[in-house]
């Protein structure tokens, strides 16, 4: 604990920024990347023959979907990392939580951009194909996961509970996917554009994926650090307050 926290001065606040030189560099790279993707996605890349200008939604949609899946995979791995006795550490738990939060956000963006794209290309906001349905279920499952993280209890209780839940989610996702796939065997080709993308479009898409991955890393690092601060408040906050009062009494 920072020794300055127990000084009687009421104006003294401990400033510990969550950014480092690395994350600042990363943040700048994300901003540049976002501008780059906007430039290529909105201006330089051509219209699609079939989807017209609607194809531009995909430059956000596909990277968000990629980011969300990446986030949930990281949550699963981190949860296993916490549960495995030799590597047990709350850092795993915080990375899992931070990653799930970012994943839920971008899964939401995926669903919204996907329905917008669907309404332009398919003429409908939603179809019951396996990819869409699994995505929706993933979204709800990880909202539940975040709700469980907020249940309270000690830090290790939270970590263990949510880690087990995350591993059950890993079990659940393929089951949902295959049952929906069986349930609706005949559906249209999910990716109309698969194999038909021009070089420029592929390049834009690729830039989007790289930028979003950097954004993911930036968000998770920061969120992980703020979660660590939250945890230390929960753990030491009472002790610090007691020490302060005691100090006051002694003066």
């Amino acid at each position: 604990m920072d020794p300055t926290a127990s000084t009687p001065s009421t104006t003294a606040t401990v400033r510990r920024p969550t950014s480092t030189r690395f994350t600042r560099g990363l943040g700048v790279a994300v901003i540049v990347g976002a501008a780059w993707v906007a430039l290529f996605g909105l201006v330089l890349s051509p219209n699609d023959a079939l989807q017209k200008t609607g194809v531009r939604i995909l430059y956000i949609h596909v990277p968000s979907a990629w980011l969300a899946y990446l986030a949930f995979i990281v949550t699963g791995i981190s949860s296993a990392g916490y549960l495995w006795k030799r590597t047990r550490s709350l850092v795993w738990d915080r990375v899992a939580g931070a990653s799930a939060e970012v994943g839920v956000l971008f899964m939401g963006i995926t669903l919204v951009t996907g329905s917008l794209w669907g309404s332009i290309t398919w003429g409908t906001y939603w179809t019951w194909d396996s990819r869409l349905t699994t995505t929706a279920f993933l979204f709800v499952t990880y909202i539940g996961y975040l709700a469980v993280r907020g249940l309270g209890g000690t830090l290790h209780q939270r970590a263990r509970r949510s880690a087990i839940l995350a591993l059950f989610a890993v079990l659940e996702v393929p089951l949902v996917h295959f049952s929906v796939k069986w349930w609706r065997p005949l559906h249209q080709n999910e990716s109309v554009a698969e194999g038909e993308l021009e070089d420029m479009m592929l390049f834009t898409l690729f830039s989007g994926i790289v930028t979003f991955t950097l954004l993911y890393v930036w968000l998770v690092i920061h969120r992980q650090r703020t979660l660590a601060l939250d945890d230390s408040v929960a753990e030491h906050g009472l002790d610090a307050a007691l020490a302060e009062r005691r100090q006051e009494a002694l003066q």
Binding site: V140, I143, G152, E172, L175, V176, V180, W183
Partner: peptide, 26 residues
Amino acid sequence: LAAGARGRETLLPLLLLPVVAPVLIG
């Protein structure tokens, strides 16, 4: 998992219904 937690009445459906979707379909 939800036992003993505050607000478990509302948490349980949120956790349980997505998981049992394959059972409902099958």
